[in-house]
């Protein structure tokens, strides 16, 4: 077996401790998205603030698993974590908006 092939094969495997680290990163990012959505949503409704908050909660509960699975699943070249981090940043910035 050539050294190149061996190292490529090694790269194709991951230790459980690394997976735990990935889970933590994915969890924090997905939680940030959900938290910012619920935090900001009450300011996004022009009329009834309660309605906007309820809508934010509906979106947040659906967004958390999607973001979590995306961040954990699409780990190659950190595509998933980067996308979810961007969404979290956008949601964080959106908390500054008050309609």
């Amino acid at each position: 077996m050539s050294p190149d092939l061996s190292s490529a094969r090694q790269k194709a495997f991951v230790s459980p401790s690394r997976l735990v680290g990935r889970v933590l990163v994915a969890f924090v990012l997905a939680w940030a998205v959900a938290h910012f959505l619920t935090l900001g949503s009450s300011g996004w409704g022009p009329g009834n603030r309660h309605d906007a908050m309820i809508f934010g909660q509906m979106i947040a509960v659906a967004a958390f698993p999607i973001m979590g699975l995306l961040a954990f699943g699409a780990w190659k070249r950190l595509t998933g974590p980067v996308i979810v981090a961007c969404v979290a940043c956008l949601a964080g910035l959106a908390t500054l908006i008050h309609l």
């Binding site: 790269k11 495997f13 954990f72 699943g73 780990w75």
Partner: peptide, 12 residues
């Protein structure tokens, strides 16, 4: 060690 593929990751 676990294979670093989407299906195995998700399985874990």
């Amino acid at each position: 060690m676990i294979q670093d593929r989407l299906r195995t990751r998700m399985g874990w």
